[in-house]
Design a protein around this nucleic acid. Structure first.
Lengths: 129, 129
DNA sequence: GGTAAACTGATAACAGTTATCATTTTAGGT
DNA sequence: ACCTAAAATGATAACTGTTATCAGTTTACC
């Protein structure tokens, strides 16, 4: 993998915008920063960075994939009201991989957990109405 | 929700083919059983059944969604070799929802876990080569 | 400085899914 | 049974997110 100006910018922008953006959302942010990166280039680099383990691709949230600069083990919660994506610490599922390896006998290389529900802010807002 | 011949057939076929098929796969199975159900009808009914809690929609496996007649709490493992989808019992993650509720303060309505790796059969096959 | 490999980005294609809508089926009341 | 309104069908067209193509540009290394 060679250096590229665009890839550096993409990684920077994702790191500074820890909101788990989709590719489209990231493109918008880049535009507002006067970085007109082509859509193909964006997708290509996001996939390359994910493959290299430098970012994480989150599937199963929307039709569209979200991207996360945080590569440490953690999970995700999506609020069905405001659609924001929140991090969930991996401690909520201790021994998950070991338990699953024992239960199934399979080699587990990675796993994702996605929670759906209502976040604190939206819960509060709904109660006040 | 009114009765419909097509919906009954779709639910039956999904129940008798517990392989977590995609919509396209299910359509193929239906065709071999001489049930020519329209693609739109299939998608509409799968979504309706999922909404009604009679089946489960599994996202985050492929680009395409898979469908599961088993609505009891359980998780999924997809083998990156043979692409088959296996069930994982929910006991591998005890107290997951409670822990997450405590850690985040959010209302959790549902959650999914997807494991990726290599299943026993494929592991064996690879070792013999 | 030259060259091979890697990268860009506009365009076109593609896959999975949903909207549209005229026709048919279902279910409940008279 | 019949009438009617609501629900369901399915062919077609549209839409969304993503990837392939490919000529031109940039990178890295001898």
């Amino acid at each position: 993998m060679n250096y590229s100006k665009q890839r550096e910018k993409i990684l920077d922008t994702l790191t500074c915008n820890a909101i788990h953006p989709t590719a489209e959302e990231l493109l918008e942010i880049l535009k507002t920063e006067n970085s007109n990166i082509g859509l193909t280039t964006l997708y290509r680099n996001l996939n390359q960075l994910a493959q290299a383990g430098m970012i994480k691709k989150i599937d199963g949230l929307d039709p569209s994939a979200h991207f996360d600069h945080n590569t440490h083990e953690h999970y995700h919660f999506i609020c069905k009201e405001c659609k924001r994506v929140f991090d969930v610490p991996s401690e909520v599922a201790p021994d998950l991989v070991n338990n699953t390896r024992m239960a199934t006998g399979f080699d587990i290389e990675n796993h994702d957990i996605v929670f759906h529900g209502v976040c604190s802010e939206c819960k509060k807002r709904k109660e006040n109405n």
